[in-house]
Design a binder for these strands. Structure first.
Lengths: 115, 115
DNA sequence: TCAGTATATAACCATATGCTTATATACGCA
DNA sequence: TGCGTATATAAGCATATGGTTATATACTGA
């Protein structure tokens, strides 16, 4: 049974705009199946740390992701309790898995959550 | 049976970026159930004609919409044969109907396709 | 306490975006 | 043909966006 939840149009465009950035879209897809911390994203995307941080701030500000500090590291995870999560999920489901990125990180010994 | 088609991530973010503008998102939702011409959108959105034209150009350039000239008027409709239409449709389905906009236009005698 | 590492924030910059006014182009009709 | 209407395009502008370098803040361990 597929019941699609209705979203306010302004809200939808706001969410779509956020996901319209390839980096943020990929982040969300990765976070759908894994937790990741900033330094892992820095490696995965080959981007500067502040750039990654800015992207994550946007996702966190709207509460699409949650953060949890573990010592030096801050782990991000997707907020499945978010009111608009079903909408986000329906979008992410169309995307190819990004698990190779994580696997590669592990192969290089750069995966943080294993520490 | 709900089979979601997989889209290239770059492609998806491009599409999401387009729909991340409230005007274009609303246009797509309207076009899902009606044809509309430029002057109707000008009335519906209370926007300048060139602004409307620019938005439509972006949708047409990527072939999400088709156009058809009928005399002085150019009518736009959604391109249901577009490769990515199922993805677009899955997004639009979450939005509230925008039929009141059209109904209001008709009440004001500004609906063009009735001419 | 201090040095090293992780991350957020500040400030800046180049480019993109969505709007405007002006003008070009297309159509209909007398 | 010329005028009126519809629409596309050009040019310009203010603001937004996504990146950078620099610095501030937080944590860890010796």
């Amino acid at each position: 049974m597929n019941t699609t939840v209705t979203i306010d149009l302004q809200r939808a465009s706001q969410l779509l705009k956020l996901l319209g950035d390839p980096t943020r879209l990929t982040m969300m897809k990765l976070l759908k199946s894994h937790e990741c911390c900033v330094c892992e994203f820095v490696e995965i995307f080959k981007m500067s740390q502040p750039a990654i941080s800015q992207h994550l701030r946007k996702l966190r500000d709207i509460e699409l992701v949650k953060e949890e500090r573990r010592g030096q590291w801050i782990f991000f995870s997707i907020n499945e309790h978010h009111e608009d999560y079903p909408f986000i999920k329906s979008i992410l489901e169309h995307l190819p898995d990004q698990n190779e990125s994580i696997a590669e990180l592990e192969a290089q010994g750069l995966r943080v959550c294993c520490q």
